[in-house]
Design a protein around this nucleic acid. Structure first.
Length: 552
RNA sequence: AGGGGCAUGGCCAAGCGGUAAGGCACCAGGUUUUGGUCCUGGCAUGCGGAGGUUCGAAUCCUUCUGCCCCUGCCA
């Protein structure tokens, strides 16, 4: 079975804060949310945010929302929404009826903006984008006030209404919060609340030509949904004063934002922008390429959702910038797979093994457990006959005392089958081995010793006439650099592993397997690693398996 | 010469004044019909540095240092 999953996120600073909030009475329950922008596919970094938000709520008996942060019609698409919902569900989380859209709040947000104008806390600014930038100042110099900052409330109200009515050109005016142009926090230097964007929105259509900015949307959306704890990544830390400013000035429900460090993994990229480049430049086959750290890519690769969840729980939550060794992730994948995967035999690079003393036309069936972790629950029969396929790499004629497998003179155990003694090998004109000859020891089916000596070499095999051809796709890391985006002055594409995929055709697999396999079924191919029937391309006519991960 | 944040073993990470959890990695043994798994043992006289408070400090105070983030009408 799949074993017990750890409950909750373990001890961390967010839990401590929530416990204090509960104790002080600031809140009586916990309600979180995951707020993706539907402009791309979810990746392993998003999975961290999902797991943290959702597991934390569950841990405290609370609930969580899914909210699409769709405030920018030029970047967002319905296609991504569907993919995001699919991925979150696959990860094992159910937001039930709590699906929201920031765009559902456009009307309310507009009213909020009017309210702030009336309070003298927002104004329409006619400066060009460049002028706004110029007056904003920089990290060490304070900004200067816009000449439009002190317009009358009436004029602001009128102008803002006309912005909404489409009377002005795109980019000609914005609505800004009147905060403090000399604030050391640049986000507080009269940030933009609304911009004119004459683009059709995928949900609201042509209704709006002005759209609220992230800062003027996020906190209020949290507030409207009564989100108690808004858990986001650390890049929003500098925005928290603004988040709180809008909530405070509007006098609405005070959601609390808490930031945690993003996930970084060695040899992988967790940046939507760079992943998009890999897709656009056709470095990979798409967002669902099994080498991609996207949720869908990993799923197609064969990574179980439970392994991703377990990984997120195991690495913990903190505010420290970290680069987690990919070994931690791979451990979780193997740990999950070894408990749950059926084990069958498949030969990657087949070489014929001829058992010289076994009758030509005979065969026999050997019964064995398919789920060794649950003995007796799944028994299958493996056909054995005179001609088998074994792994080419399991034979050598070189003199190597540490090589325990097929070598002339060696005794070797054919897993679950007979003990065999390697006799010889035949080669073709160019010196390639074409067949190995062995003799088997009748009656050695359950034996592991010869002449009282334990056999050290155990190999997998498949019967030549009782096996099917299949395709194996072997994957390796996409990047050679430990930290691709930090690699000194190198284009990250130069850091690509040229051999990140190897497709092997003509592999052989036990004949019972393919006919009972569906896309996404996972196996351990004994001694070869964990494999998953490709979710897009697998069929009995095209039996392609993706290597999820090697055995260690 | 601005503001915000972070510093505990190779990588994560607990700890919240009482004498350094745990996981990964690694090393050494044992088991094993996968050179896998599993089991056992090892792995920080030390918590970025320096001072100080205290019977006692990773935890409190002072100071220094290093790294990350912030100048989109992106989110």
């Amino acid at each position: 079975m799949e074993g017990k999953e750890n409950e909750g996120m373990g001890s961390n600073f967010i839990r401590t804060i929530i416990e204090e909030d509960l104790k002080s009475g600031r809140t009586e329950s916990v309600h979180t949310r995951f707020p993706p922008e539907p402009n791309g596919y979810l990746h392993i970094g998003h999975a961290k945010a999902i797991v943290i938000n959702y597991e934390t709520a569950s841990e405290f008996g609370g609930v969580y929302n899914l909210r699409f942060d769709d405030t920018n019609p030029v970047k967002e698409e319905i296609e991504f929404e569907e993919a995001i919902k699919r991925d979150i569900k696959w990860l094992g989380y159910d937001w039930q009826h709590r699906l929201y859209y920031a765009s559902d709040y456009f009307e309310t947000l507009y009213e909020y903006a009017v309210e702030l104008i009336k309070k003298g806390l927002a104004y329409v600014c006619d400066l060009s984008q460049d002028q706004v930038k110029e007056l904003r100042g920089n990290l060490t110099e304070p900004g200067k006030e816009s000449p439009f900052r002190n317009r009358s409330i009436e004029e602001n109200l009128d102008l803002f209404k006309r912005m909404k009515n489409g009377e002005f050109d795109e980019g000609s005016r914005v609505l800004r919060a009147k905060i403090d142009m000399s604030s050391p926090n640049i986000n507080m230097r009269d940030p933009v609340m609304y911009r004119i964007l004459k683009k059709e929105h995928h949900r609201t259509g042509k209704k709006w030509v002005i759209y609220p900015s992230y800062d003027f949307t996020h906190g209020q959306s949290d507030s409207l949904e009564k989100i108690t704890h808004s858990l986001c990544d650390i890049s929003f830390e500098n925005h928290r004063p603004l988040y709180e400013w809008f909530i405070d000035k509007l006098g609405i429900y005070p959601s609390r934002q808490i930031e945690f460090a993003r996930l970084n993994l060695t040899y992988t990229i967790t940046s939507k922008r760079f992943l998009k480049r890999l897709v656009d430049e056709e470095t990979v086959e798409g967002w669902d390429d099994p080498r991609m750290p996207t949720i869908i890519g990993m799923r197609r690769r064969g990574v179980p959702a439970g392994a991703i969840r377990e990984f997120m729980k195991s690495v913990g939550v903190s505010k420290k910038e970290s680069l987690i060794d990919i070994d931690n992730f791979e451990y979780c994948v193997r740990d999950y797979l070894k408990k749950s995967s059926p084990q069958v035999m498949a030969v990657k690079e087949p070489l014929v093994l001829n058992i010289v003393n076994y009758p030509e036309d005979e065969s026999e069936n050997i019964e064995t457990d398919t789920l060794p972790s649950n003995p007796g629950t799944a028994i299958r029969k493996i056909p054995f006959s005179k001609y088998l396929y074994v792994e080419r790499s399991d034979y050598t004629d070189k003199d190597d005392p540490d090589f325990f497998r097929l070598r002339p003179g060696n005794f070797v155990k054919l897993r679950k089958s007979y003990i065999v003694r390697c006799l010889s090998a035949t080669k073709d004109d160019s010196g390639n081995i074409t067949e190995i000859q062995c003799e088997y020891i009748p009656g050695s089916l359950n034996m592991m010793k010869v002449d009282g000596k334990k056999i050290k070499g155990i190999i997998h095999w498949v019967s030549k006439d009782h096996s099917d051809e299949c395709i194996l796709r072997l994957y390796d890391r996409l990047f050679n650099a430990e930290n691709p985006l930090r690699a000194k002055d190198a284009d990250f594409k130069e850091l690509l592993n040229k051999n990140s995929v190897r497709v092997i055709k003509g592999c052989r697999i036990e004949s019972s397997v393919i006919k009972s396999t569906s896309p996404e079924d996972r196996y351990q191919f004994i001694r070869n690693g964990y494999f998953c029937a490709d979710m897009k391309e697998f069929s009995p006519a095209n039996p392609v398996f993706n290597m999820t991960i090697s055995l260690k």
